[in-house]
Design a protein around this nucleic acid. Sequence first.
DNA 1: GCTTTGTGATACCATTTGGCATCCTTTTAT
DNA 2: ATAAAAGGATGCCAAATGGTATCACAAAGC
Lengths: 108, 108
Amino acid sequence: MPPDLQPAFRALADPTRRDILRRLSAREMTLAEVTRHCDMTRAAVKKHLVVLEEGNLIQMRRQGRETISTLNAAALKPVTDWLSYFDAFWQDKLTALTTALQDEKDNT
Amino acid sequence: MPPDLQPAFRALADPTRRDILRRLSAREMTLAEVTRHCDMTRAAVKKHLVVLEEGNLIQMRRQGRETISTLNAAALKPVTDWLSYFDAFWQDKLTALTTALQDEKDNT
DNA sequence: GCTTTGTGATACCATTTGGCATCCTTTTAT
DNA sequence: ATAAAAGGATGCCAAATGGTATCACAAAGC
């Protein structure tokens, strides 16, 4: 049974959340740290983190008084797998184009 | 300059639209045909198609009285490229896990 | 103990989103 | 010439989304 892709795709649909993911790829960060980069209130950032967590793209753990968010990049695999289904189509088109151009060159 | 990923990610965020994309991978279809599979009104389907077109994931052309939608799978490449940035992270984790399990086995 | 820092939770708000129904126009088919 | 089929364009609506402000609370620092 494949996982439900919806929460992950939903989480990826917002530029702020995609930006957060990239930052978390460097290192895990507290809510305050993430907020520092985001130009919006802590509450707003927190909402984004919750959406990312619902998509299983990050994990949050409480440590003392701070909450640390960690990237879970593996959760992106089902997404790339879904997208890879289409590789054959655009690659075919590209191959056809390349072949066509090559033929054109040959016929010169 | 990389293309703006937002319209594509936005388009992919809806399950109906993802479903339409897969159907269009088989063959191009008229609005009426797409609607037949979607369990919603033609107007609603049309809106989805517009969003897909804004994401450049499909193209629409008028032919006589019908509008034909065609998949543009190549537009998914920037999306997969963006996602591939994270491959290193989850693969590293996976490699580490595999190595750890192997070590454990070796030490038995 | 008191203050500061980091969060959680909640209520509220404007905009976007995903639907519908309806009306109008353009092609085809009879 | 009509009628039927395929769409385009609008207007409307409820719910989701992305943001704010505010209040309450626990953990750290002095």
